[in-house]
Write a protein that binds this DNA or RNA. Structure first.
Lengths: 119, 119
DNA sequence: CTTATACTTCGCCAACTAACGAATTGAAGA
DNA sequence: TCTTCAATTCGTTAGTTGGCGAAGTATAAG
C-alpha cells in the first residue's frame, strides 16, 4: 500500500506525467526536460527525484550532464504502471503538443540549449 | 491530462484506495465504510465525493441510507484504472487486513452499526 | 589551481489537502 | 407536524506540495 501510494502520488502531477511521456522516446538530459517544461531547474530536479524514488525513472551521469530514462529492465514492476499511464494518455492533446515541441528541442545542440536558461 | 490527473489524485490517498478495495466485494452503505476506516463521517463523505467525481464509484440513495459501489458499466473507462489498482494491490497485507475486518462489519446489522458512531 | 557549468539541495512561501466538529439537508418514523 | 437520523456541507486547522531563487556539489575547461 505504501509503495503503491508513493507511485500514484508520483504520477498525480501533470508536469511529472509530462516527463514520463517525454522519456518514451528515449533518455533525455535534464536541460532538455527543463526546456520542455519551462520550469526552474530546481523545480524540475525535484520532480525527477520524486519519479526516481518511485522507481519510475533511472538516472545516469555522463560528464557534466545527467541523463534520465525509463527503467531499463522491462520486467521492472514500474512498467505495469507506465504501460497504464501511456495507454491512458495516448490520445491526450497535451501529450501530442509536447511531442511536437520535444522533437524540436532534441534537434537543438546541447551546448546551446544549456545557455538558454543561464539567462 | 486533466481527467487523468484527477483520477490519479483520487487514488493517491490510502483511505480512498481502501474504499475502492472494499467495494470489490459489492456495494456498501456509508456507515460500514466509516466503521472500516475508523474516520469521522464528514471525512469519509469527502473521500467518497472525490472518488465519485473521478468516476471511480457510483452512489445510490435508498431511504435513509446511501450506498456506494464500483461502476456498474463494465465498459466504463474507470475500469481500466480499477483493474490496475486491484492488480497492484492484490498481495497487499493492508488490503487483506481490511478484507478480514470488512467480513465482520458486513455481518453487523445496519441499524446497530449506525448507532456506533452516534456516540 | 581557478573558473565555469550542470545539476541538486536548501530555505522559503503560497496554494492545496486531509482531518475534525458544527451546522445543514432530506428522508423516515412518531 | 415534529423529531430522528444518515449523510453531506461548511469552517477551521495542521500538514503537505509545487514553485522559486540562493547556495552547494561535482565535473570539465582554462
Amino acid at each position: 500500500m505504501n509503495t503503491f501510494v508513493k507511485t500514484t502520488k508520483a504520477i498525480s502531477d501533470p508536469n511529472r506525467v509530462r516527463i514520463l511521456m517525454a522519456l518514451r522516446a528515449g533518455e533525455l538530459c535534464v536541460c532538455r526536460i527543463i526546456e520542455l517544461l519551462q520550469l526552474a531547474p530546481s523545480t524540475v530536479s525535484k520532480h525527477l527525484t520524486i519519479l526516481k524514488q518511485a522507481g519510475l525513472i533511472e538516472g545516469r551521469k555522463e560528464g557534466r550532464w545527467m541523463y534520465y530514462c525509463l527503467p531499463q529492465d522491462p520486467n521492472s514492476r514500474a512498467w505495469d504502471t507506465l504501460h497504464w499511464v501511456f495507454q491512458s494518455l495516448e490520445s491526450s492533446s497535451d501529450v501530442k503538443d509536447d511531442e511536437v515541441r520535444l522533437a524540436k528541442i532534441i534537434k537543438i545542440d546541447i551546448e546551446k540549449l544549456c545557455e538558454i536558461y543561464k539567462k
